[in-house]
Amino acid sequence: MEKIILCIKGVPKPGTVKVDPSTHTLKRDSLELILNPPDRQAVEMAVRLKENYGFKITVVTMGPPNVIPFLKEVYGIGADEMVLLSDRAFAGADTLATSYVLAEAIKKLSPYSLVVMGLKSIDGETSQVPAETAALLGLPSITNVKTIVKEGNNWILIRQTEYGEEELELEPPVVASVLPEVFDYLRPPSLKRLLEVKEKDPLVFTAQDLRLSPEKLGLNGSPTQVVEVFEKKFEAKGQVVEGEPSFLVEKLISVLEQKGIIHP
């Protein structure tokens, strides 16, 4: 059976990221993780392809063991196999060091005919990992994908850019990143599958399992270096007006008149 590799990521829940003012580093203890929302679109895409063509889905994520619940959630939605890429040496990886681990893991999971990922993660928002991983695998990458169908042996993908929609044809395998907002309905995990996965553990690949070069891993293997992080603080600088809505609107209208936006 042909295989789809589905990559997902656990990201900090918005609002839980804080900077430690003394060390200028991120406070890890306040972090709460969620499944990266754009990845849900990739999950839905993979599960629809499975329904239509009978693929097997292998869901892959990189991170410490606290991301296992997301693998199980995706299993509940329809994945068939779970793989966790976990090693202390992976910590602090930028997109290149992350893509290196993903690409090596994907090679080990060969053969496959499609790799799907979300367009971007909501923490780094780089949208680099799909294309970077594809480049390392020597495969074509198509970003901003809204539709994927098979025609004979080939993939037909529709990519949306600001200019319009392109219909592309490629031989497998291909790496695709799925546009957010493609699917209005994202199916929830099924209870049956969630019960089934309770007893299952993901396959774990460490750096050694993948025979990775230590100098390409984690913080040290990352060419992108953070010199400083700081929190932006705002000081009140303008006029603050309180009162009934009608009073506020009067104030706003007079400002719009002053600025020449509307004319009395």
């Binding site: 930028d94 997109t95 290149l96 893509s99 780094g124 928002e125 780089t126 949208s127 680099q128 990992v129 799909p130 294309a131 970077e132 991983t133 594809a134 480049a135 390392l136 990458s141 198509i142 970003t143 901003n144 990352s222 060419p223 992108t224 270096q225």
Partner: peptide, 18 residues
């Protein structure tokens, strides 16, 4: 955003976003 990471990946370069 589709092009830059392909080049960075192929040439093993760092890439800052946004």
């Amino acid at each position: 955003c589709a092009l830059a990471p392909r080049i960075a990946g192929k040439l093993n370069l760092g890439l800052c976003a946004h």
